[in-house]
């Protein structure tokens, strides 16, 4: 561009300004707390929580030899399930943390009190512990009690997980206990029926 040509610079500036205002506006609207966008916020944040869980489940797996040995000694009898149990514990922790973190943030944003990180942290800690327990029991149930019925094991596990997340979301929040439990239960049942065919489509095809 020639040094004297300011027209191009002006146009570029105008274009950037338009783009910036458009992106700012779109982001503002997408994360608005008004009307339907408030509901969509929960969807975005839930999906974001799922993404965080996925990243943590992939990268946050810590090698704990003592836990592996403990699981192997306790559960590896005729079938070796300790590895699956070990993985499920980390999956539960990641799912509990990610989804509760995201839903707690959106809940705090939507209430009339001052935003509190402590309430979010408390819910996340509880969700990690309960998530580990639920996924461990689900894996154990699928392996020991329902070895030929993968679907039922997952249905139970993920439904209980959804209900527990709903319950955790009611802790120190504006959500009533009854609403949280019903919401979590329905959400858990519906979500597992969409999640399961996507993840375990090979099992369904074989069946």
């Amino acid at each position: 561009m020639k040094p004297g040509n300011t027209c191009g610079i002006k146009e570029k500036g105008r274009f950037l300004k338009t783009m910036r205002s458009f992106s700012n506006g779109t982001v503002k609207v997408a994360f608005s707390l008004k009307g339907t966008y408030r509901r969509l916020n929960w969807l975005w944040f839930g999906a974001l929580g799922g993404l965080v869980s996925w990243v943590f489940a992939l990268s946050g797996k810590i090698t704990l030899p003592w836990l592996r040995e403990l699981l192997s000694a306790g559960f590896d009898t005729d079938v070796q399930i300790s590895t699956a149990l070990y993985d499920s514990i980390f999956l539960g922790a990641a799912m509990g943390f990610g989804i509760t973190l995201a839903l707690s943030i959106v809940e705090e944003m939507g209430q009339s009190r001052m935003f509190s990180f402590w309430r979010i942290l408390l819910r996340c800690v509880i969700a990690i512990v309960l998530g580990m327990l639920i996924f461990f029991l689900q894996e154990l149930l699928t392996a020991k009690v329902l070895p030929n019925n993968n679907y039922l094991g997952h249905l139970l596990g993920w439904t209980i997980f959804g209900t527990v997340i709903g319950l955790i979301c009611t802790l120190l929040s504006t959500i009533e206990l009854k609403s949280g439990l019903i919401g979590g239960l329905i959400a858990g049942i519906v979500a597992v029926h969409i999640y399961y065919p996507l993840v375990y489509s090979d099992i369904l095809i074989r069946a």
């Binding site: 929960w42 969807l43 839930g46 993404l51 489940a57 009533e176 609403s179 329905i186």
Partner: peptide, 24 residues
């Protein structure tokens, strides 16, 4: 997991909002 999270959040809020009696 992203699908599961999104659905869980969306449905949970829909039910909770439906059962809410008083709002400001």
């Amino acid at each position: 997991m992203i699908f599961y999270g999104g659905l869980l959040g969306g449905i949970l809020h829909s039910v909770v909002a439906h059962l809410e009696d008083f709002e400001i």
